[in-house]
Design a protein around this nucleic acid. Structure first.
Lengths: 212, 212
DNA sequence: TTATATTATTAAACAGTGTTCAATAAATTT
DNA sequence: AAATTTATTGAACACTGTTTAATAATATAA
């Protein structure tokens, strides 16, 4: 019997079951309340079985982070190209990214604030050369390059600008999530509008202005 | 004997001892590794005694957060007034705030990312009217007002701008802390310089520019 | 000083956590 | 049917925060 394939499939299915249960608990009780025993109890197995499918709890959490990361990227990719104006495109991308992130605030927070080295390596965006390696930053970098195409600005400066915009957007999103109980819908809209205004029309032009 | 005063003093001293020990553990092993039993063991008492001086572990952590918050504000207050140029002042303030925060990255992260309602209420900066209530934001708001004094810009827009700058700065700092192992000193300097450039000279002017 | 009341301290227990290991049950291969 | 591999578990270990009842120490009142 070619049961080796089925075995592996069944193994993956059980891993999926465990991950889905963990995700379920995260949604209900928050990421801090995921416990091995809770997962085991829900799938009606003994706690020890978890360790037959995952090395430890961290590995499970890492898988959840990966899922969240992918979800965010998918949401970002859905940024529709409805315009050819590079600045308007940048506005739409930024707004889309913020709104997608706010829609899955749990995942965003969990992924972006996770301190596990592996996860940090995946979400990192400030290191030199990140614009070439990180999908989200790559898009941002190319958008900026189009905006700057007439002006004589070094690629390294454009990368720095993209990184600053990414970090700033991250900051706004995290604070919006953390303060969501204190902020009205109207205020939220105002903040996002103002952010996009001064990011695209201000920040982006900051490179080309005289200082003094 | 007026021993009531001494009693209270001794009580406060023991509370201080507990808090200092907790802070010590935080510095050595990180905030997640603070445990009641570890504190008790270090001060050579039984774990239960902690609950005679604090309601629960959360109260201890809250006190540590308060300390960190004060430390950050003190560091910010030390922003020297070496210039009268409002834009240059804003640059110096921003740079000072970033550098102070990076110097006590543990406290900054702990305070700013703490989800306890009370702590969030203290660090919140995006709600309407925050510029009047939050010290750090107040300074920022007034700095912006001086920059805009010749132009006709509504106070509400200035507040929004201050809030965006605060959230962006927060984002940069948190990411710099989280990615510190991946970022060289040179890159860090470049990022901070570029941030200040496009924040002060870009963001700030974003309000006054034509869009299209 | 002695008795009383207050305060400080602890041992022990409860309920929870992640993890490991040896034993057992189930399934697959020979 | 026997041997081997895989799946599953119970029980234990070492942690975690917290509560309760009992005890030790101290301060106040008689």
């Amino acid at each position: 019997m070619g049961s080796k394939e089925r075995k592996e499939r069944e193994r993956r299915e059980k891993q999926e079951l465990i991950l889905n249960t963990a995700a379920e608990i995260m949604k209900e009780d928050g990421i801090d309340n995921i416990s091995i025993r809770k997962i085991a109890s829900r799938i009606e197995y003994s706690p020890a079985i978890i360790y037959h499918y995952f090395k430890d709890k961290d590995e499970i959490l890492n898988h959840l982070m990966q899922r969240g990361y992918r979800k965010i990227l998918d949401g970002l990719a859905a940024a529709l190209d409805t315009t050819d104006d590079p600045r308007e495109k940048l506005r739409q991308m930024t707004r889309n990214y913020i709104e997608v992130s706010l829609q899955m605030s749990d995942e965003y927070k969990a992924v972006q604030l996770n301190s596990t080295p592996g996860v940090v390596a995946q979400t990192a965006s400030l290191f030199k050369g990140a614009a070439a390696k990180k999908p989200a930053l790559k898009i941002l970098f190319q958008g900026l390059k189009e905006i700057y195409k007439d002006r004589d600005i070094d690629d390294s400066v454009i990368e720095l600008t993209a990184q600053i915009i990414a970090a700033s957007t991250f900051g706004l999103i995290i604070r919006l999530i953390m303060e969501q109980d204190l902020i009205s819908e109207e205020q939220k809209t105002n903040l996002i509008d103002q952010f996009i205004r001064i990011t695209v029309d201000g920040m982006v032009l900051g490179n080309t202005l005289d200082r003094g």
